[in-house]
Design a protein around this nucleic acid. Structure first.
Length: 181
DNA sequence: TGTTGGATCAACT
DNA sequence: GTTGATCCAACAC
């Protein structure tokens, strides 16, 4: 299992595939953030082990999806080994396949931007807590490498949080049109 | 049993 | 730049 920051950087440009009801929804990741360990104040595991963040304490390769602000879900990828809580939040992506279905899932998306934010991404892919804890090595939700070459990858502070902003744990493709705001 | 605030988004001023 | 929408887990009582 490789270090979370390394995995996060590698995820940029990779394909995220979600198979459901015979359809395939594919997006190319452009924007991710790492949340690592109990001493990261912005990480959900900062308060210790709870029912909600339990999945982050397991081995890497599983999905961690939580519900927030009463209306949005966020999709994370659990990394590292057992008992070391860490995850990568998928913030933004570019739709590659299944655009019609995303449009149905998220008809009121502005400017056709279905996936340029963590809440929107989950809505477009129709991911909810029901998809929490999925094994990402199985064939429902998984990653593919299409050998897409990302021109540049930049690191910055994380977005939308109050604590732990100093850590430059957000990785993104600065040339993409699909970055979160 | 009750209160509070959050890894968001869109629509306001 | 600020606010409302609106759920659930965490924590205080």
């Amino acid at each position: 299992m490789r270090p979370t920051l390394e995995v996060a950087r590698d995820l940029i440009g990779k394909m995220l595939v979600y198979r459901k009801d015979g359809n395939r929804l594919i997006v190319r990741l452009t924007d991710v953030e790492a949340y690592i360990g109990e001493d990261d104040p912005a990480c959900h595991a900062a308060v210790g082990r709870t029912v909600r963040n339990e999945i982050m304490y397991g081995i890497g390769g599983f999905s961690y999806i939580y519900f927030i602000y009463g209306m949005y879900h966020c999709l994370n990828v659990v990394t590292e080994q057992k008992d070391y809580p860490s995850a990568i939040l998928l913030r933004g992506a570019e739709p590659i396949e299944g655009l019609e279905l995303m449009k149905i899932n998220y008809p009121e998306a502005k400017n056709g931007k279905y996936t340029n934010g963590p809440g929107k991404l989950c809505r477009a892919l129709n991911l909810t807590r029901a998809e929490n804890g999925l094994d990402l090595t199985k064939d429902t939700l998984y990653f593919e490498d299409h050998d897409y070459i990302v021109g540049r990858i930049e690191a910055s502070g994380r977005i939308g949080i109050n604590k732990g902003k100093k850590r430059k744990w957000r990785f993104f493709d600065p040339d993409s049109e699909w970055l979160s705001v």
